[in-house]
Structure formats: C-alpha cells, structure tokens
C-alpha cells in the first residue's frame, strides 16, 4: 500500500468516526426533546448536543471531501452555527419566561427576582 492510500484510509476512518459521533449526538438531542419535562430543559436539548453534533458532522464531511472550496463553506457553516445558536436559545428561553415562570417543582433553586426579572413585561 502506498503512503498516499494509507493517509486516505486514515482520513476516511476519522471521517467515519466524526460522522457517526455527530449523528449520535443529534439523535440524543432528538430523544431529549421528547423526553425532557419542560420548555427550558428542552431548549438545552434543541441547542446543545446538536452544536457539537453538527461540528462533528462538518468535520467528518471536511475530512472526506478534502477540497478547499468545500472546506471553506463548512468552516462558514460552523462559524455561523456557533454565532446563532446561543441567540436562538436565549430568545426562546426569554419568551417562555415572559409567558410564565418555570415550574418550581423542577427547580433546585430559583433566583430570578419575584417580579419576573429585568426584562419582564411589567
């Protein structure tokens, strides 16, 4: 086997590991979305394992495609994912908070001010 084909095998194997890991994390996010008890907990599932999941999938794609034009697009997708996911999570969380306070039965502690916090509609 020539050194080139060895390198290709290594890269392909790494790509498979990344793609499978990323897919598993996305599956976990889906399961959590169904199973978690309230909206705020679900927001964790909807925004988080999927961030690393997507990054792993992108890394896997990059390792497999190996052309600069494709890789630059993947880098952009990753960067915008990191920039936008927190905003999405925050906006949904805040909207939920304005609607009603989190269920105290699910909380160990709740340190939001009694009037609903700085951005409450009052």
């Amino acid at each position: 086997m020539s050194p080139d084909s060895v390198l290709e095998t290594v890269l392909d194997t790494a790509a498979v590991v990344c793609l499978a890991g990323g897919a598993l994390l996305c599956l976990a996010a889906g399961v959590a979305l169904v199973r978690f008890p309230d909206l705020l907990s679900r927001m964790h599932a909807a925004t988080k394992p999927q961030v690393l999941g997507l990054l792993l999938v992108l890394l896997g794609c990059g390792l497999r495609l190996r052309t600069s034009a494709d890789v630059t697009t993947l880098v952009l997708i990753g960067a915008f994912q990191l920039a936008t996911a927190p905003v999405a999570a925050h906006m949904v969380g805040r909207a939920a908070l304005r609607e009603r306070r989190p269920d105290p039965d699910l909380l160990v502690t709740d340190e939001l001010p009694a009037d609903g916090g700085p951005s409450s509609p009052s």
């Binding site: 964790h44 996911a85 927190p86 925050h90 939001l112």
Partner: peptide, 26 residues
C-alpha cells in the same frame, strides 16, 4: 460570557440585567 455559556450544554442564559451585569442562567 453569555455566548460561551449558551454554547456549552447544560446552561442557557435566559435573562440579563445589563445595569448590574447579572446573568440569569438556567
């Protein structure tokens, strides 16, 4: 700090008090 917190699973910033620099984190 909010963005870094939001990207790490297990924590979401749900409200920010800009005047006192307080984050309310779920």
């Amino acid at each position: 700090t909010s963005v870094a917190l939001c990207l790490v699973p297990g924590s979401i910033v749900i409200d920010v008090d800009r005047a006192t620099g307080t984050l309310y984190v779920h």
